[in-house]
């Protein structure tokens, strides 16, 4: 299996933005949808603030090489987390950014959606659910995995006191792209 037979996704931002959690939820949704997943994330000395990312390689059957080599989709919540992503983006890749926090999105190799992710999260009451807004937007645009699988992953794997807020944020993200006109 070559990397063209996998789907590769990166969720990137700064430490504390919850990209690890978003990656785990997406990975769980993919498994529930019958795929095999390899998920890796930045691993650095424990402290907040640095860039943070969660990478997924999704395959039918087994994943051969578990690290990303050509991204099909990128969710970027902070400019500082761009790093080597531009070089990894596949032709036509889907890119979702936070419009306010990513002033210089990667040059248009693909389909760019600059969205008010953190702003929408703040409206919902907590800017820290921008990860869920972004995930909802990304899955809404990609059409995959099934949105219901992601919802179910949120329901089963996030703490009860955040469940409703997370679900609301996820759905708000999808709603953003249902009306999004900023597609490049």
């Amino acid at each position: 299996m070559s990397d063209t037979a996998t789907r590769q996704i990166r969720l990137a931002g700064t430490g504390g933005q919850g990209l690890g959690l978003a990656g785990r939820l997406l990975a769980d949704a993919c498994v529930a949808a019958g795929h095999a997943v390899a998920q890796s994330q930045t691993y650095e000395p424990t402290s907040r603030g640095g860039s943070s990312r969660s990478d997924l390689v999704v395959a039918d059957g087994t994943v051969d090489y578990p690290l990303v080599t050509a991204l099909d989709a990128l969710l970027l919540l902070d400019q500082a987390a761009l790093e080597d992503a531009p070089a990894l983006l596949r032709e036509g890749a889907l890119v979702v950014t936070d419009a306010a926090l990513v002033p210089h999105p990667p040059a248009a190799q693909g389909e760019l959606h600059a969205l008010p992710l953190t702003a929408r999260a703040r409206e919902l009451g907590n800017p820290r659910v921008a990860n869920m807004v972004g995930l909802g937007a990304l899955v809404g645009l990609a059409g995959w995995p099934a949105f219901e699988q992601v919802e179910r992953a949120v329901e089963t794997s996030t703490p009860a006191r955040f469940r409703e807020l997370n679900l609301a944020a996820l759905r708000a993200g999808r709603a953003l792209v249902a009306t999004d006109a900023s597609a490049a």
Binding site: H35, A36, V37, A38, Q39, Q41, Y43, V63, P66
Partner: peptide, 10 residues
């Protein structure tokens, strides 16, 4: 190695 230690796989 560290990659496999921290890798999450199905």
């Amino acid at each position: 190695d560290e990659v496999l230690g921290h890798l999450v796989e199905t």
